[in-house]
């Protein structure tokens, strides 16, 4: 079942430099953590995409298997999985996030 979405997910994480899988939409986030994650990235001004998987339990399950991460939201930067703000916050404090975002968006 998971393979069904594997390709779709791979395309999505390659297509968006910052991708949040979460609950709800940009204008109507359905969960505090999804909103918090968007606000986290709003600070940097880089564009990001939010894909709602609340209505798609099978895709949500495929994502959980792919990332070995049980919760939403799930954040991908430049095609790599980074968990959620629980992981991004400490990265930010250690100064690891800005270079990562710069590298993602300023690739020649």
């Amino acid at each position: 079942m998971a393979e069904l979405f594997e390709q779709e997910i791979q395309q999505e994480i390659q297509a968006h430099k910052i991708l949040i899988y979460g609950k709800g939409t940009k204008t109507a986030p359905m969960c505090g953590f999804t909103k918090e994650t968007m606000q986290f990235f709003d600070k940097y001004g880089y564009p990001y995409e939010l894909i709602d998987v609340l209505q798609n339990p099978a895709k949500r399950e495929a994502l959980t298997k792919l990332t070995n991460w049980p919760t939403l939201p799930k954040v991908f930067i430049n095609g790599t999985f980074y968990g959620d703000t629980d992981v991004l916050d400490p990265m930010e404090k250690k100064g690891e996030l800005v270079p990562l975002l710069k590298a993602a968006f300023e690739q020649k």
């Binding site: 991460w69 919760t71 980074y82 968990g83 400490p90």
Partner: peptide, 10 residues
């Protein structure tokens, strides 16, 4: 890594 630490807790 941070991810693996959190996976352990989850």
């Amino acid at each position: 890594s941070l991810l693996d630490r959190h996976r352990l807790v989850y």
